[in-house]
Amino acid sequence: HHGSGALAALHADGPHAGLPVTRSDARVLIFNDWEERKRSEPWLRLDMSDKAIFRRYPHLR
């Protein structure tokens, strides 16, 4: 199991509170979210491209 239990660094406060600090933090969040959702949506594709990251977390651009 590759990303399970990996912890992402999140901004503690300010405008980005609760959001990932780096792209690799964002990838951890996206992976964990996908892993949760694919139980009920097995067709869901995992997209951890930069484009997917920016779409979801525009502050990382």
Rank of each mutant, 00 (worst) to 15 (best):
H1G: 12
H1S: 12
H2D: 08
H2R: 12
H2N: 09
G3N: 12
G3A: 11
S4A: 11
S4K: 15
S4E: 11
S4M: 13
S4Y: 11
S4G: 10
S4N: 11
G5H: 12
G5I: 12
G5L: 13
G5K: 12
A6N: 12
A6G: 10
A6M: 14
A6T: 14
A6L: 15
L7N: 09
L7D: 08
L7P: 10
L7E: 09
L7G: 11
A8E: 04
A8L: 07
A8Y: 11
A8F: 07
A8R: 04
A8K: 14
A9L: 11
A9C: 15
A9Q: 13
A9Y: 11
L10I: 08
L10M: 06
L10N: 15
L10V: 09
L10H: 04
H11F: 08
H11E: 05
H11C: 07
H11A: 04
H11K: 04
H11Y: 13
A12E: 11
A12T: 12
A12V: 12
A12W: 08
A12S: 12
A12F: 09
D13N: 08
D13C: 12
D13G: 08
D13E: 09
G14E: 03
G14S: 04
G14R: 04
G14D: 03
P15S: 05
P15Q: 06
P15N: 08
P15I: 07
H16A: 05
H16F: 14
H16Q: 10
H16I: 09
H16V: 04
A17W: 05
A17K: 14
A17I: 11
A17G: 04
A17Y: 08
G18W: 04
G18A: 04
G18T: 03
G18Q: 07
L19W: 04
L19H: 03
L19Q: 05
L19Y: 04
P20F: 15
P20N: 14
P20K: 01
P20H: 01
P20L: 03
V21L: 13
V21Y: 05
V21I: 14
V21S: 09
V21F: 04
T22F: 03
T22H: 06
T22Q: 05
T22G: 06
T22C: 07
T22A: 06
R23Y: 15
R23V: 15
R23W: 09
R23H: 07
S24E: 14
S24L: 09
S24K: 13
D25E: 07
D25R: 02
D25M: 04
D25N: 02
A26V: 01
A26I: 01
A26F: 01
A26G: 02
A26W: 05
A26L: 01
R27H: 03
R27T: 03
R27M: 11
R27C: 11
R27I: 06
R27P: 00
V28Y: 06
V28D: 02
V28L: 12
L29N: 07
L29K: 02
L29R: 03
L29V: 08
L29I: 08
L29H: 03
I30T: 01
I30F: 13
I30V: 05
F31D: 15
F31C: 08
F31T: 05
F31I: 06
N32V: 09
N32A: 11
N32D: 09
N32Q: 13
N32T: 09
N32K: 13
N32R: 14
N32C: 12
D33M: 07
D33K: 05
D33G: 04
D33H: 06
W34Q: 00
W34M: 01
W34I: 01
E35P: 00
E35G: 05
E36V: 11
E36A: 11
E36I: 14
E36Y: 13
E36T: 10
E36F: 12
R37W: 02
R37V: 02
K38Q: 09
K38A: 13
K38E: 02
K38D: 02
K38T: 08
R39L: 14
R39W: 09
R39E: 10
R39S: 11
R39M: 09
R39Y: 10
R39K: 14
S40Q: 11
S40N: 14
E41K: 09
E41L: 06
E41I: 07
E41R: 05
E41Y: 08
E41A: 06
P42I: 04
P42Q: 05
W43I: 03
W43C: 11
W43D: 12
W43T: 08
W43K: 08
L44E: 09
L44Q: 08
L44F: 10
R45G: 07
R45Q: 11
R45T: 10
L46W: 01
L46Q: 01
L46F: 03
L46A: 02
L46I: 04
L46Y: 15
L46T: 00
D47T: 02
D47P: 01
D47N: 11
M48F: 07
M48N: 03
S49R: 04
S49L: 02
S49T: 07
S49D: 03
S49K: 01
D50T: 07
D50H: 07
D50W: 15
D50V: 09
K51T: 11
K51N: 12
K51F: 13
K51L: 10
K51V: 12
K51D: 14
A52C: 08
A52F: 07
A52G: 14
I53K: 15
F54T: 07
F54K: 03
F54L: 10
F54H: 07
R55Y: 10
R55W: 07
R55A: 13
R55H: 10
R55N: 12
R55Q: 13
R55C: 09
R55D: 13
R56K: 13
R56M: 09
Y57A: 00
Y57Q: 13
Y57K: 00
Y57H: 00
Y57M: 00
P58M: 02
P58A: 03
H59E: 00
H59M: 01
H59T: 07
H59R: 01
L60R: 01
L60S: 00
L60D: 00
R61S: 09
R61D: 08
